[in-house]
C-alpha cells in the first residue's frame, strides 16, 4: 500500500474543515439546503476530489477522468464547494446556490455544473448508474475508476440492491462505492425508520468486497480507497461510519438538521466551531458516529 505522509493527511483534514464551513455558508445564504449529510460526507468527498481522483478542472469532460456519482445528491452544497475550490468554476458562484438561472441547482445537474458527472437527487439511482459507467469503461478498455457515494438511508431503496447484483455479476472491480453511514435520515435514526443492519454481511451476501472504516479519519479513508484499487474480480464497498452534521455541535446526530438552513446566529456558531482544527483524537479514533 502507498505510504501517505502525516502532512498530506493533515492538509486534507484541514481542507475538509474548510469545505464544511463553505457548505454551511452556502446553505445559510440560500436559506435552504441539507447541512447534515453535507457535513457527514465532507471527509469522504475531500479525499476523493482533492486526493484520490484523476481530474482536470480545466477540462471537466476529459475522457480519462475518474467519475464521481453523488447518489446522495442532497449533499450538493459540499460537492459544489469542493468543485469550486478544486477549480471547476469560480468560488463566487457558490453564492448562487438554489437561485434562478444558477448553475448550482438544489441537487446536482450534469448539464449545468462543470465537474458534475451525473444528475442526482432522487435517492437510489447512483449505484446502478455507476455500475453502467464502470461496465462501459471496461468495454472500452478505459482505465478510469467510478466512485459512487451513497447515503445509508438510501440502502432501503430496492434499486440499490438491483445495482449491487449487477456489479457483482459483471465482476466490476473498477467501481468503488462508499456508504456514508451516518445513521440518521430525514425523519429519524435509520435503525428506527427501517433498520439496514447487518450492513457488512448484507453487502457480502450480494457478492461485494467490504472495507469498514471510520469515515472522519482521513488516513483510514485514503487507505481504504487505495485498498479498493487492489481488489480484483469483485466490486468494493467502503462502509464509512460517520456522524451526521459532523463538526457542528448542535447539528451532530440530529435529524432536524437533515434539510434546514441555519439562522444568522447558528451560522456564526457553526463557522466558529468548524474553524477549530480537526480534532486529532477524532481523526484517529474508532468508528463512532454510525449505528
Amino acid at each position: 500500500m502507498v505510504y501517505h505522509s502525516d502532512e498530506l493527511v493533515a492538509a486534507l483534514a484541514e481542507r475538509a474543515a474548510q469545505l464544511r464551513r463553505t457548505a454551511i455558508e452556502m446553505i445559510y445564504c440560500a436559506q435552504s439546503g441539507h447541512p447534515g449529510g453535507s457535513l457527514s460526507a465532507a471527509d469522504l468527498l475531500t479525499a476523493l476530489l482533492f486526493h484520490k481522483m484523476r481530474l482536470d478542472p480545466a477540462n471537466p469532460g476529459w475522457p480519462e477522468r475518474d467519475r464521481l456519482i453523488l447518489s446522495k445528491g442532497h449533499a450538493a452544497p459540499l460537492l459544489y464547494a469542493a468543485l469550486a475550490q478544486r477549480g471547476f468554476f469560480p468560488i463566487e458562484e457558490l453564492k448562487t446556490l438554489r437561485q434562478l438561472d444558477s448553475r448550482l441547482q438544489g441537487h446536482p445537474d450534469r448539464l449545468k455544473t462543470p465537474g458534475v458527472d451525473m444528475t442526482a437527487g432522487a435517492l437510489g439511482h447512483g449505484l446502478a448508474i455507476g455500475a453502467g459507467l464502470a461496465l462501459s469503461a471496461r468495454l472500452d478498455n478505459q482505465t478510469f475508476r467510478t466512485y459512487v457515494v451513497l447515503g445509508d438511508g438510501e440502502l432501503q431503496a430496492g434499486v440499490i440492491w438491483e445495482g449491487a447484483l449487477f456489479a457483482a455479476k459483471y465482476h466490476l472491480d473498477n467501481i468503488t462505492v462508499i456508504v456514508d453511514l451516518n445513521g440518521v435520515q430525514l425523519d429519524g435514526p435509520v435503525r428506527d425508520i427501517m433498520p439496514i443492519e447487518p450492513i457488512v454481511d448484507k453487502w457480502r451476501s450480494f457478492g461485494w468486497y467490504v472495507i469498514e472504516i471510520h469515515g472522519h479519519n482521513m488516513r483510514q479513508i485514503i487507505d481504504a480507497l487505495d485498498e479498493a484499487d487492489d481488489i480484483h474480480g469483485q466490486p468494493t464497498v467502503i462502509i464509512a461510519h460517520t456522524t451526521k452534521g459532523k463538526g457542528v455541535s448542535f447539528m451532530e446526530n440530529q435529524c432536524t438538521w437533515h434539510g434546514r438552513a441555519p439562522s444568522p446566529e447558528q451560522c456564526q456558531q457553526a463557522i466558529c466551531e468548524l474553524a477549530v482544527s480537526p480534532d486529532a483524537a477524532d481523526a484517529a479514533g474508532p468508528a463512532g458516529g454510525g449505528q
Binding site: 432501503q156 430525514l186 425523519d187 427501517m194 434539510g259
Partner: peptide, 30 residues
C-alpha cells in the same frame, strides 16, 4: 410514510397515533 413525514407533515398523525403510523423508510415501491 417513506421517510418524509416531517416534510409532508404526515408526522402530525404519527405523534397522536404512533400505532397507526407505519414508517417504511426510503422504499416507496414497498
Amino acid at each position: 410514510d417513506a421517510d418524509l413525514g416531517s416534510s409532508t407533515r404526515a408526522s402530525v398523525f404519527a405523534s397522536e397515533f404512533p400505532e397507526r403510523f407505519i414508517q417504511v423508510g426510503i422504499a416507496e415501491q414497498n
